[in-house]
């Protein structure tokens, strides 16, 4: 996956919409949005690449107060398919209007829980047949998780205080593996060198990447060197 790396830009606000555009294009969605409440400042941050008329309508009507994709999805640890929501008054209020603006109620929301009680919600939608939707979900769910945690962490870490608090806490294993990557070893080699399974290498590498806010392994190595966590290879 090649997404805009929000951790390398000066201003997340300026690039978030482009990030969502790319996400839609790459994974095959019509629209995407992200929303989160910062538990420290209490600010609600949100981005969406919906048509401007819909965004305006949504804000004017205060639909975020009743939107089930927001208040219900935050209760789950797994991505929530909007098909799970009861079609009550609140659901109808949001999605009847959405329909008029050409936005489908076929969608899902990926909740990401952060360490400080924060929760970020990445929502995607696509107007398509049920079979197509099921297939798409299966194909892209992993990438959606990666995208969701990336945008969430970067939005949460804007602000000087949060940035200072968020020096990544890498475990010895994570550092050790990144160090071997830095000297050019493959995952298989590293497993052999450390006498651990290939899967163990992978799970720590993935965790290390996410802690460093990196979307790829080379980028994670670069950051880890920059932060003096490992030595240049």
């Amino acid at each position: 996956m090649k997404l805009i790396d929000l951790s390398s830009v000066q201003d997340v606000d300026q690039h978030a919409d482009a990030f969502l555009d790319e996400l839609c294009q790459m994974l095959g969605f019509d629209f995407a949005s992200y929303a989160a409440t910062n538990p420290i400042s209490g600010d609600v941050r949100g981005y969406a690449n919906y048509p401007d008329e819909w965004k305006l309508h949504y804000t004017k009507r205060g639909l975020h107060h009743v939107d089930p994709t927001l208040y219900n999805s935050a209760k789950s640890i797994a991505p929530v398919d909007w098909g799970r929501f009861e079609h009550d008054g609140k659901f109808t209020k949001v999605f009847r209007d959405a329909h008029d603006f050409g936005i489908s109620d076929r969608g899902l929301t990926v909740p990401i829980r952060g360490p400080y009680g924060d929760c970020g919600l990445l929502s995607v939608t696509r107007n398509c047949k049920p079979t197509e939707w099921e297939k798409l979900k299966q194909e892209v769910m992993g990438d959606l998780q990666i995208s969701a945690v990336h945008i969430h962490d970067n939005v949460m870490q804007t602000g000087v205080l949060s940035k200072a608090l968020s020096t990544p806490a890498l475990s010895s294993r994570e550092k050790e593996i990144l160090q071997w990557v830095a000297v050019g070893k493959s995952q298989q080699d590293i497993g052999d060198i450390l006498s651990i399974s290939h899967r163990t290498v992978e799970v720590h590498l993935r965790s290390g990447r996410e802690k460093l806010g990196a979307l790829s392994t080379p980028q994670a190595v670069g950051r880890a060197i920059g932060l003096n966590l490992i030595m240049p290879g």
Binding site: R113, G114, C119, Q145, I146, R173, S207, E210
Partner: peptide, 26 residues
């Protein structure tokens, strides 16, 4: 989720011998 509060991070951390826990959306 391991991205947020969970037991290995907050209760069972002794198992990890002082190491920070895994954190991944996956």
């Amino acid at each position: 989720q391991t991205t947020g509060p969970h037991m290995l991070a907050d209760v069972f951390y002794s198992i990890l011998d002082g190491e920070p826990p895994l954190r991944s959306a996956q």
